[in-house]
Design a protein around this nucleic acid. Structure first.
Lengths: 109, 109
DNA sequence: TGTGTTTATCGTAATATTACGATGTAGATT
DNA sequence: AATCTACATCGTAATATTACGATAAACACA
C-alpha cells in the first residue's frame, strides 16, 4: 500500500520518524551541512553545490522546511535559507532521547 | 525518477541518510524502542505489539537488520532479535556529529 | 514597459516503500 | 512421517519519493 499507518503509533514515534525521514536523503544532509557551515545562505548557492537540478533542490528545501529544520526568508530576488536553531535543538534532543535509552543486557544474544 | 543519485554525494552523507532512512518509519522506531526495553526479544512478541501483519513486521526487521542496527539469532523455532550495540553506538555518534556542528551566526536571518 | 534573475510549482516518468495474503522453510512436537 | 509453530519470502496493489524540464511568479533593472 505504501501508506504508513501513522494512526496506530504514538505521537512521539511518528514525530521521530518524520524527523528521520527529513534526514533520509544525502541531498538534504548536504543542504543542512552547508547551511550549518555557511554564514550567508542563498538558495542559488545550493543549486551550484549540489549535483541536482534547480527544481529538485527546491523540492528538497521544501521538505526540510515542512519539518521546520530550516526556514527561508525572501531577500529581494533570492531567498535566504538557514537552520531553524530552535527546531534543530529539539531534533537533536529527540534523537538523543532514543539513543540514550538504556540498553538492557539480553538473556539471549 | 525516484532513484537517489548516491554517487554524487560523499560516503558520509550517504551513510547518514541511510541510517536516517532506517529510522524513518514509526514501526521501526517502535521496534527499536521495544528491543531496547525488553530483555528477551523474540520476533513473535513484536507482531503482537505492533499494529501490523506478520509479513510487514518481518519486512521492517529486515530493513533494520540490513543497516546493522539489530541482529537476529535463530533460537529454535523462533528468532531472537536485539540491538546491535556496536552499530547502535556508531549510529548515535554519526547523528551527534551532525547535530553538534557549530551553527554559524547568520548575517541574514 | 520589457528583460533578465531567482526561486517555486506543475506535470510527469522512473523507482521505492508500505502493507498484506499466500506460500515456503526449518526446527519442534506428536 | 505428519503436523504444528515461527518466521521469511513472494507476489502484488496502493501510494510515496526522486528527479527534471517547462513554466509561472516575483522582484530588479535597464
Amino acid at each position: 500500500m505504501g501508506v504508513t499507518k501513522t494512526e496506530n503509533f504514538t505521537e512521539a514515534q511518528n514525530q521521530l520518524a518524520s524527523l528521520a525521514k527529513a534526514l533520509a536523503h544525502p541531498a538534504r544532509v548536504a543542504i543542512l551541512q552547508y547551511l550549518l557551515k555557511q554564514q550567508t545562505c542563498i538558495c542559488g548557492d545550493l543549486v551550484e553545490v549540489l549535483p541536482l537540478a534547480q527544481a529538485t533542490v527546491s523540492q528538497h528545501l521544501k521538505e526540510l522546511k515542512s519539518v521546520g529544520l530550516i526556514k527561508g526568508e525572501i531577500e529581494g530576488t533570492s531567498v535566504c535559507y538557514c537552520i531553524n536553531e530552535a527546531v534543530w535543538e529539539q531534533a537533536k534532543n529527540t534523537l538523543l532521547k532514543l539513543f540514550t535509552l538504556p540498553i538492557n543486557t539480553k538473556k539471549c544474544c
